[in-house]
């Protein structure tokens, strides 16, 4: 049985890409192995851990639950993209300063999700942050430092 192929076209981190890939390729495998954006990680490959979170047309999705072919014509942004654009540099700096990561494997997904939360630009309690971030597993930090970092960035962004 030979592999069924498909040609996909999309924008990834601002650049147009066209590739012919096996139909069954997941979006996260596509960006990792075809494009070399290895910042998105695979922690479970069944939609639970959030390590594979990427942005597709403005929404954070699980890259392991979406086929690359489903992103046809879409705009995809990975951790590399939002790092290069400087969109979350305050959050990244705070994560480092607060040591809100240890092994760093969850971190790209965590930052994608946190960026979405912070984009709400609203007052939020630590409970609110904890609840919103609950789709992203971290096995190292115990979450406290992650909540600290997000809370502090939100406070300073709200102050403007």
């Amino acid at each position: 049985m030979s592999e069924e192929m498909v040609t996909v076209n999309m924008t990834v981190n601002g650049e147009n890409v066209t590739k012919t890939i096996p139909v069954r390729t997941h979006l996260v495998d596509f960006v990792r192995t075809e494009l070399g954006f290895t910042g998105s990680h695979l922690g479970c490959e069944h939609g639970v851990c959030g390590a594979c979170s990427v942005r597709v047309d403005g929404d954070v999705v699980r890259g392991c639950l979406m086929l690359a072919a489903q992103a046809e014509g879409s705009e995809v942004v990975t951790i590399e993209g939002i790092s290069d654009s400087g969109e979350i540099s305050d959050l990244q700096d705070k994560f480092v300063e607060r040591n809100a990561l240890q092994c760093g494997f969850c971190t790209p997904g965590m930052l994608m999700t946190a960026a979405e939360l912070l984009a709400q630009k609203t007052e939020m309690s630590r409970e609110d942050i904890r609840e919103f971030m609950s789709g992203n597993y971290c096995r190292c930090t115990g979450y406290h430092a992650i909540v600290d970092a997000i809370e502090s960035v939100n406070n300073s962004r709200l102050k403007g």
Binding site: T38, G39, H41, T78, E80, F95, G104, F105, T107, L111
Partner: peptide, 12 residues
């Protein structure tokens, strides 16, 4: 290592 990881540049 943390500075690298937050940019998605960790090397696993």
């Amino acid at each position: 290592r943390a500075m690298r990881a937050v940019a998605g540049r960790g090397r696993y």
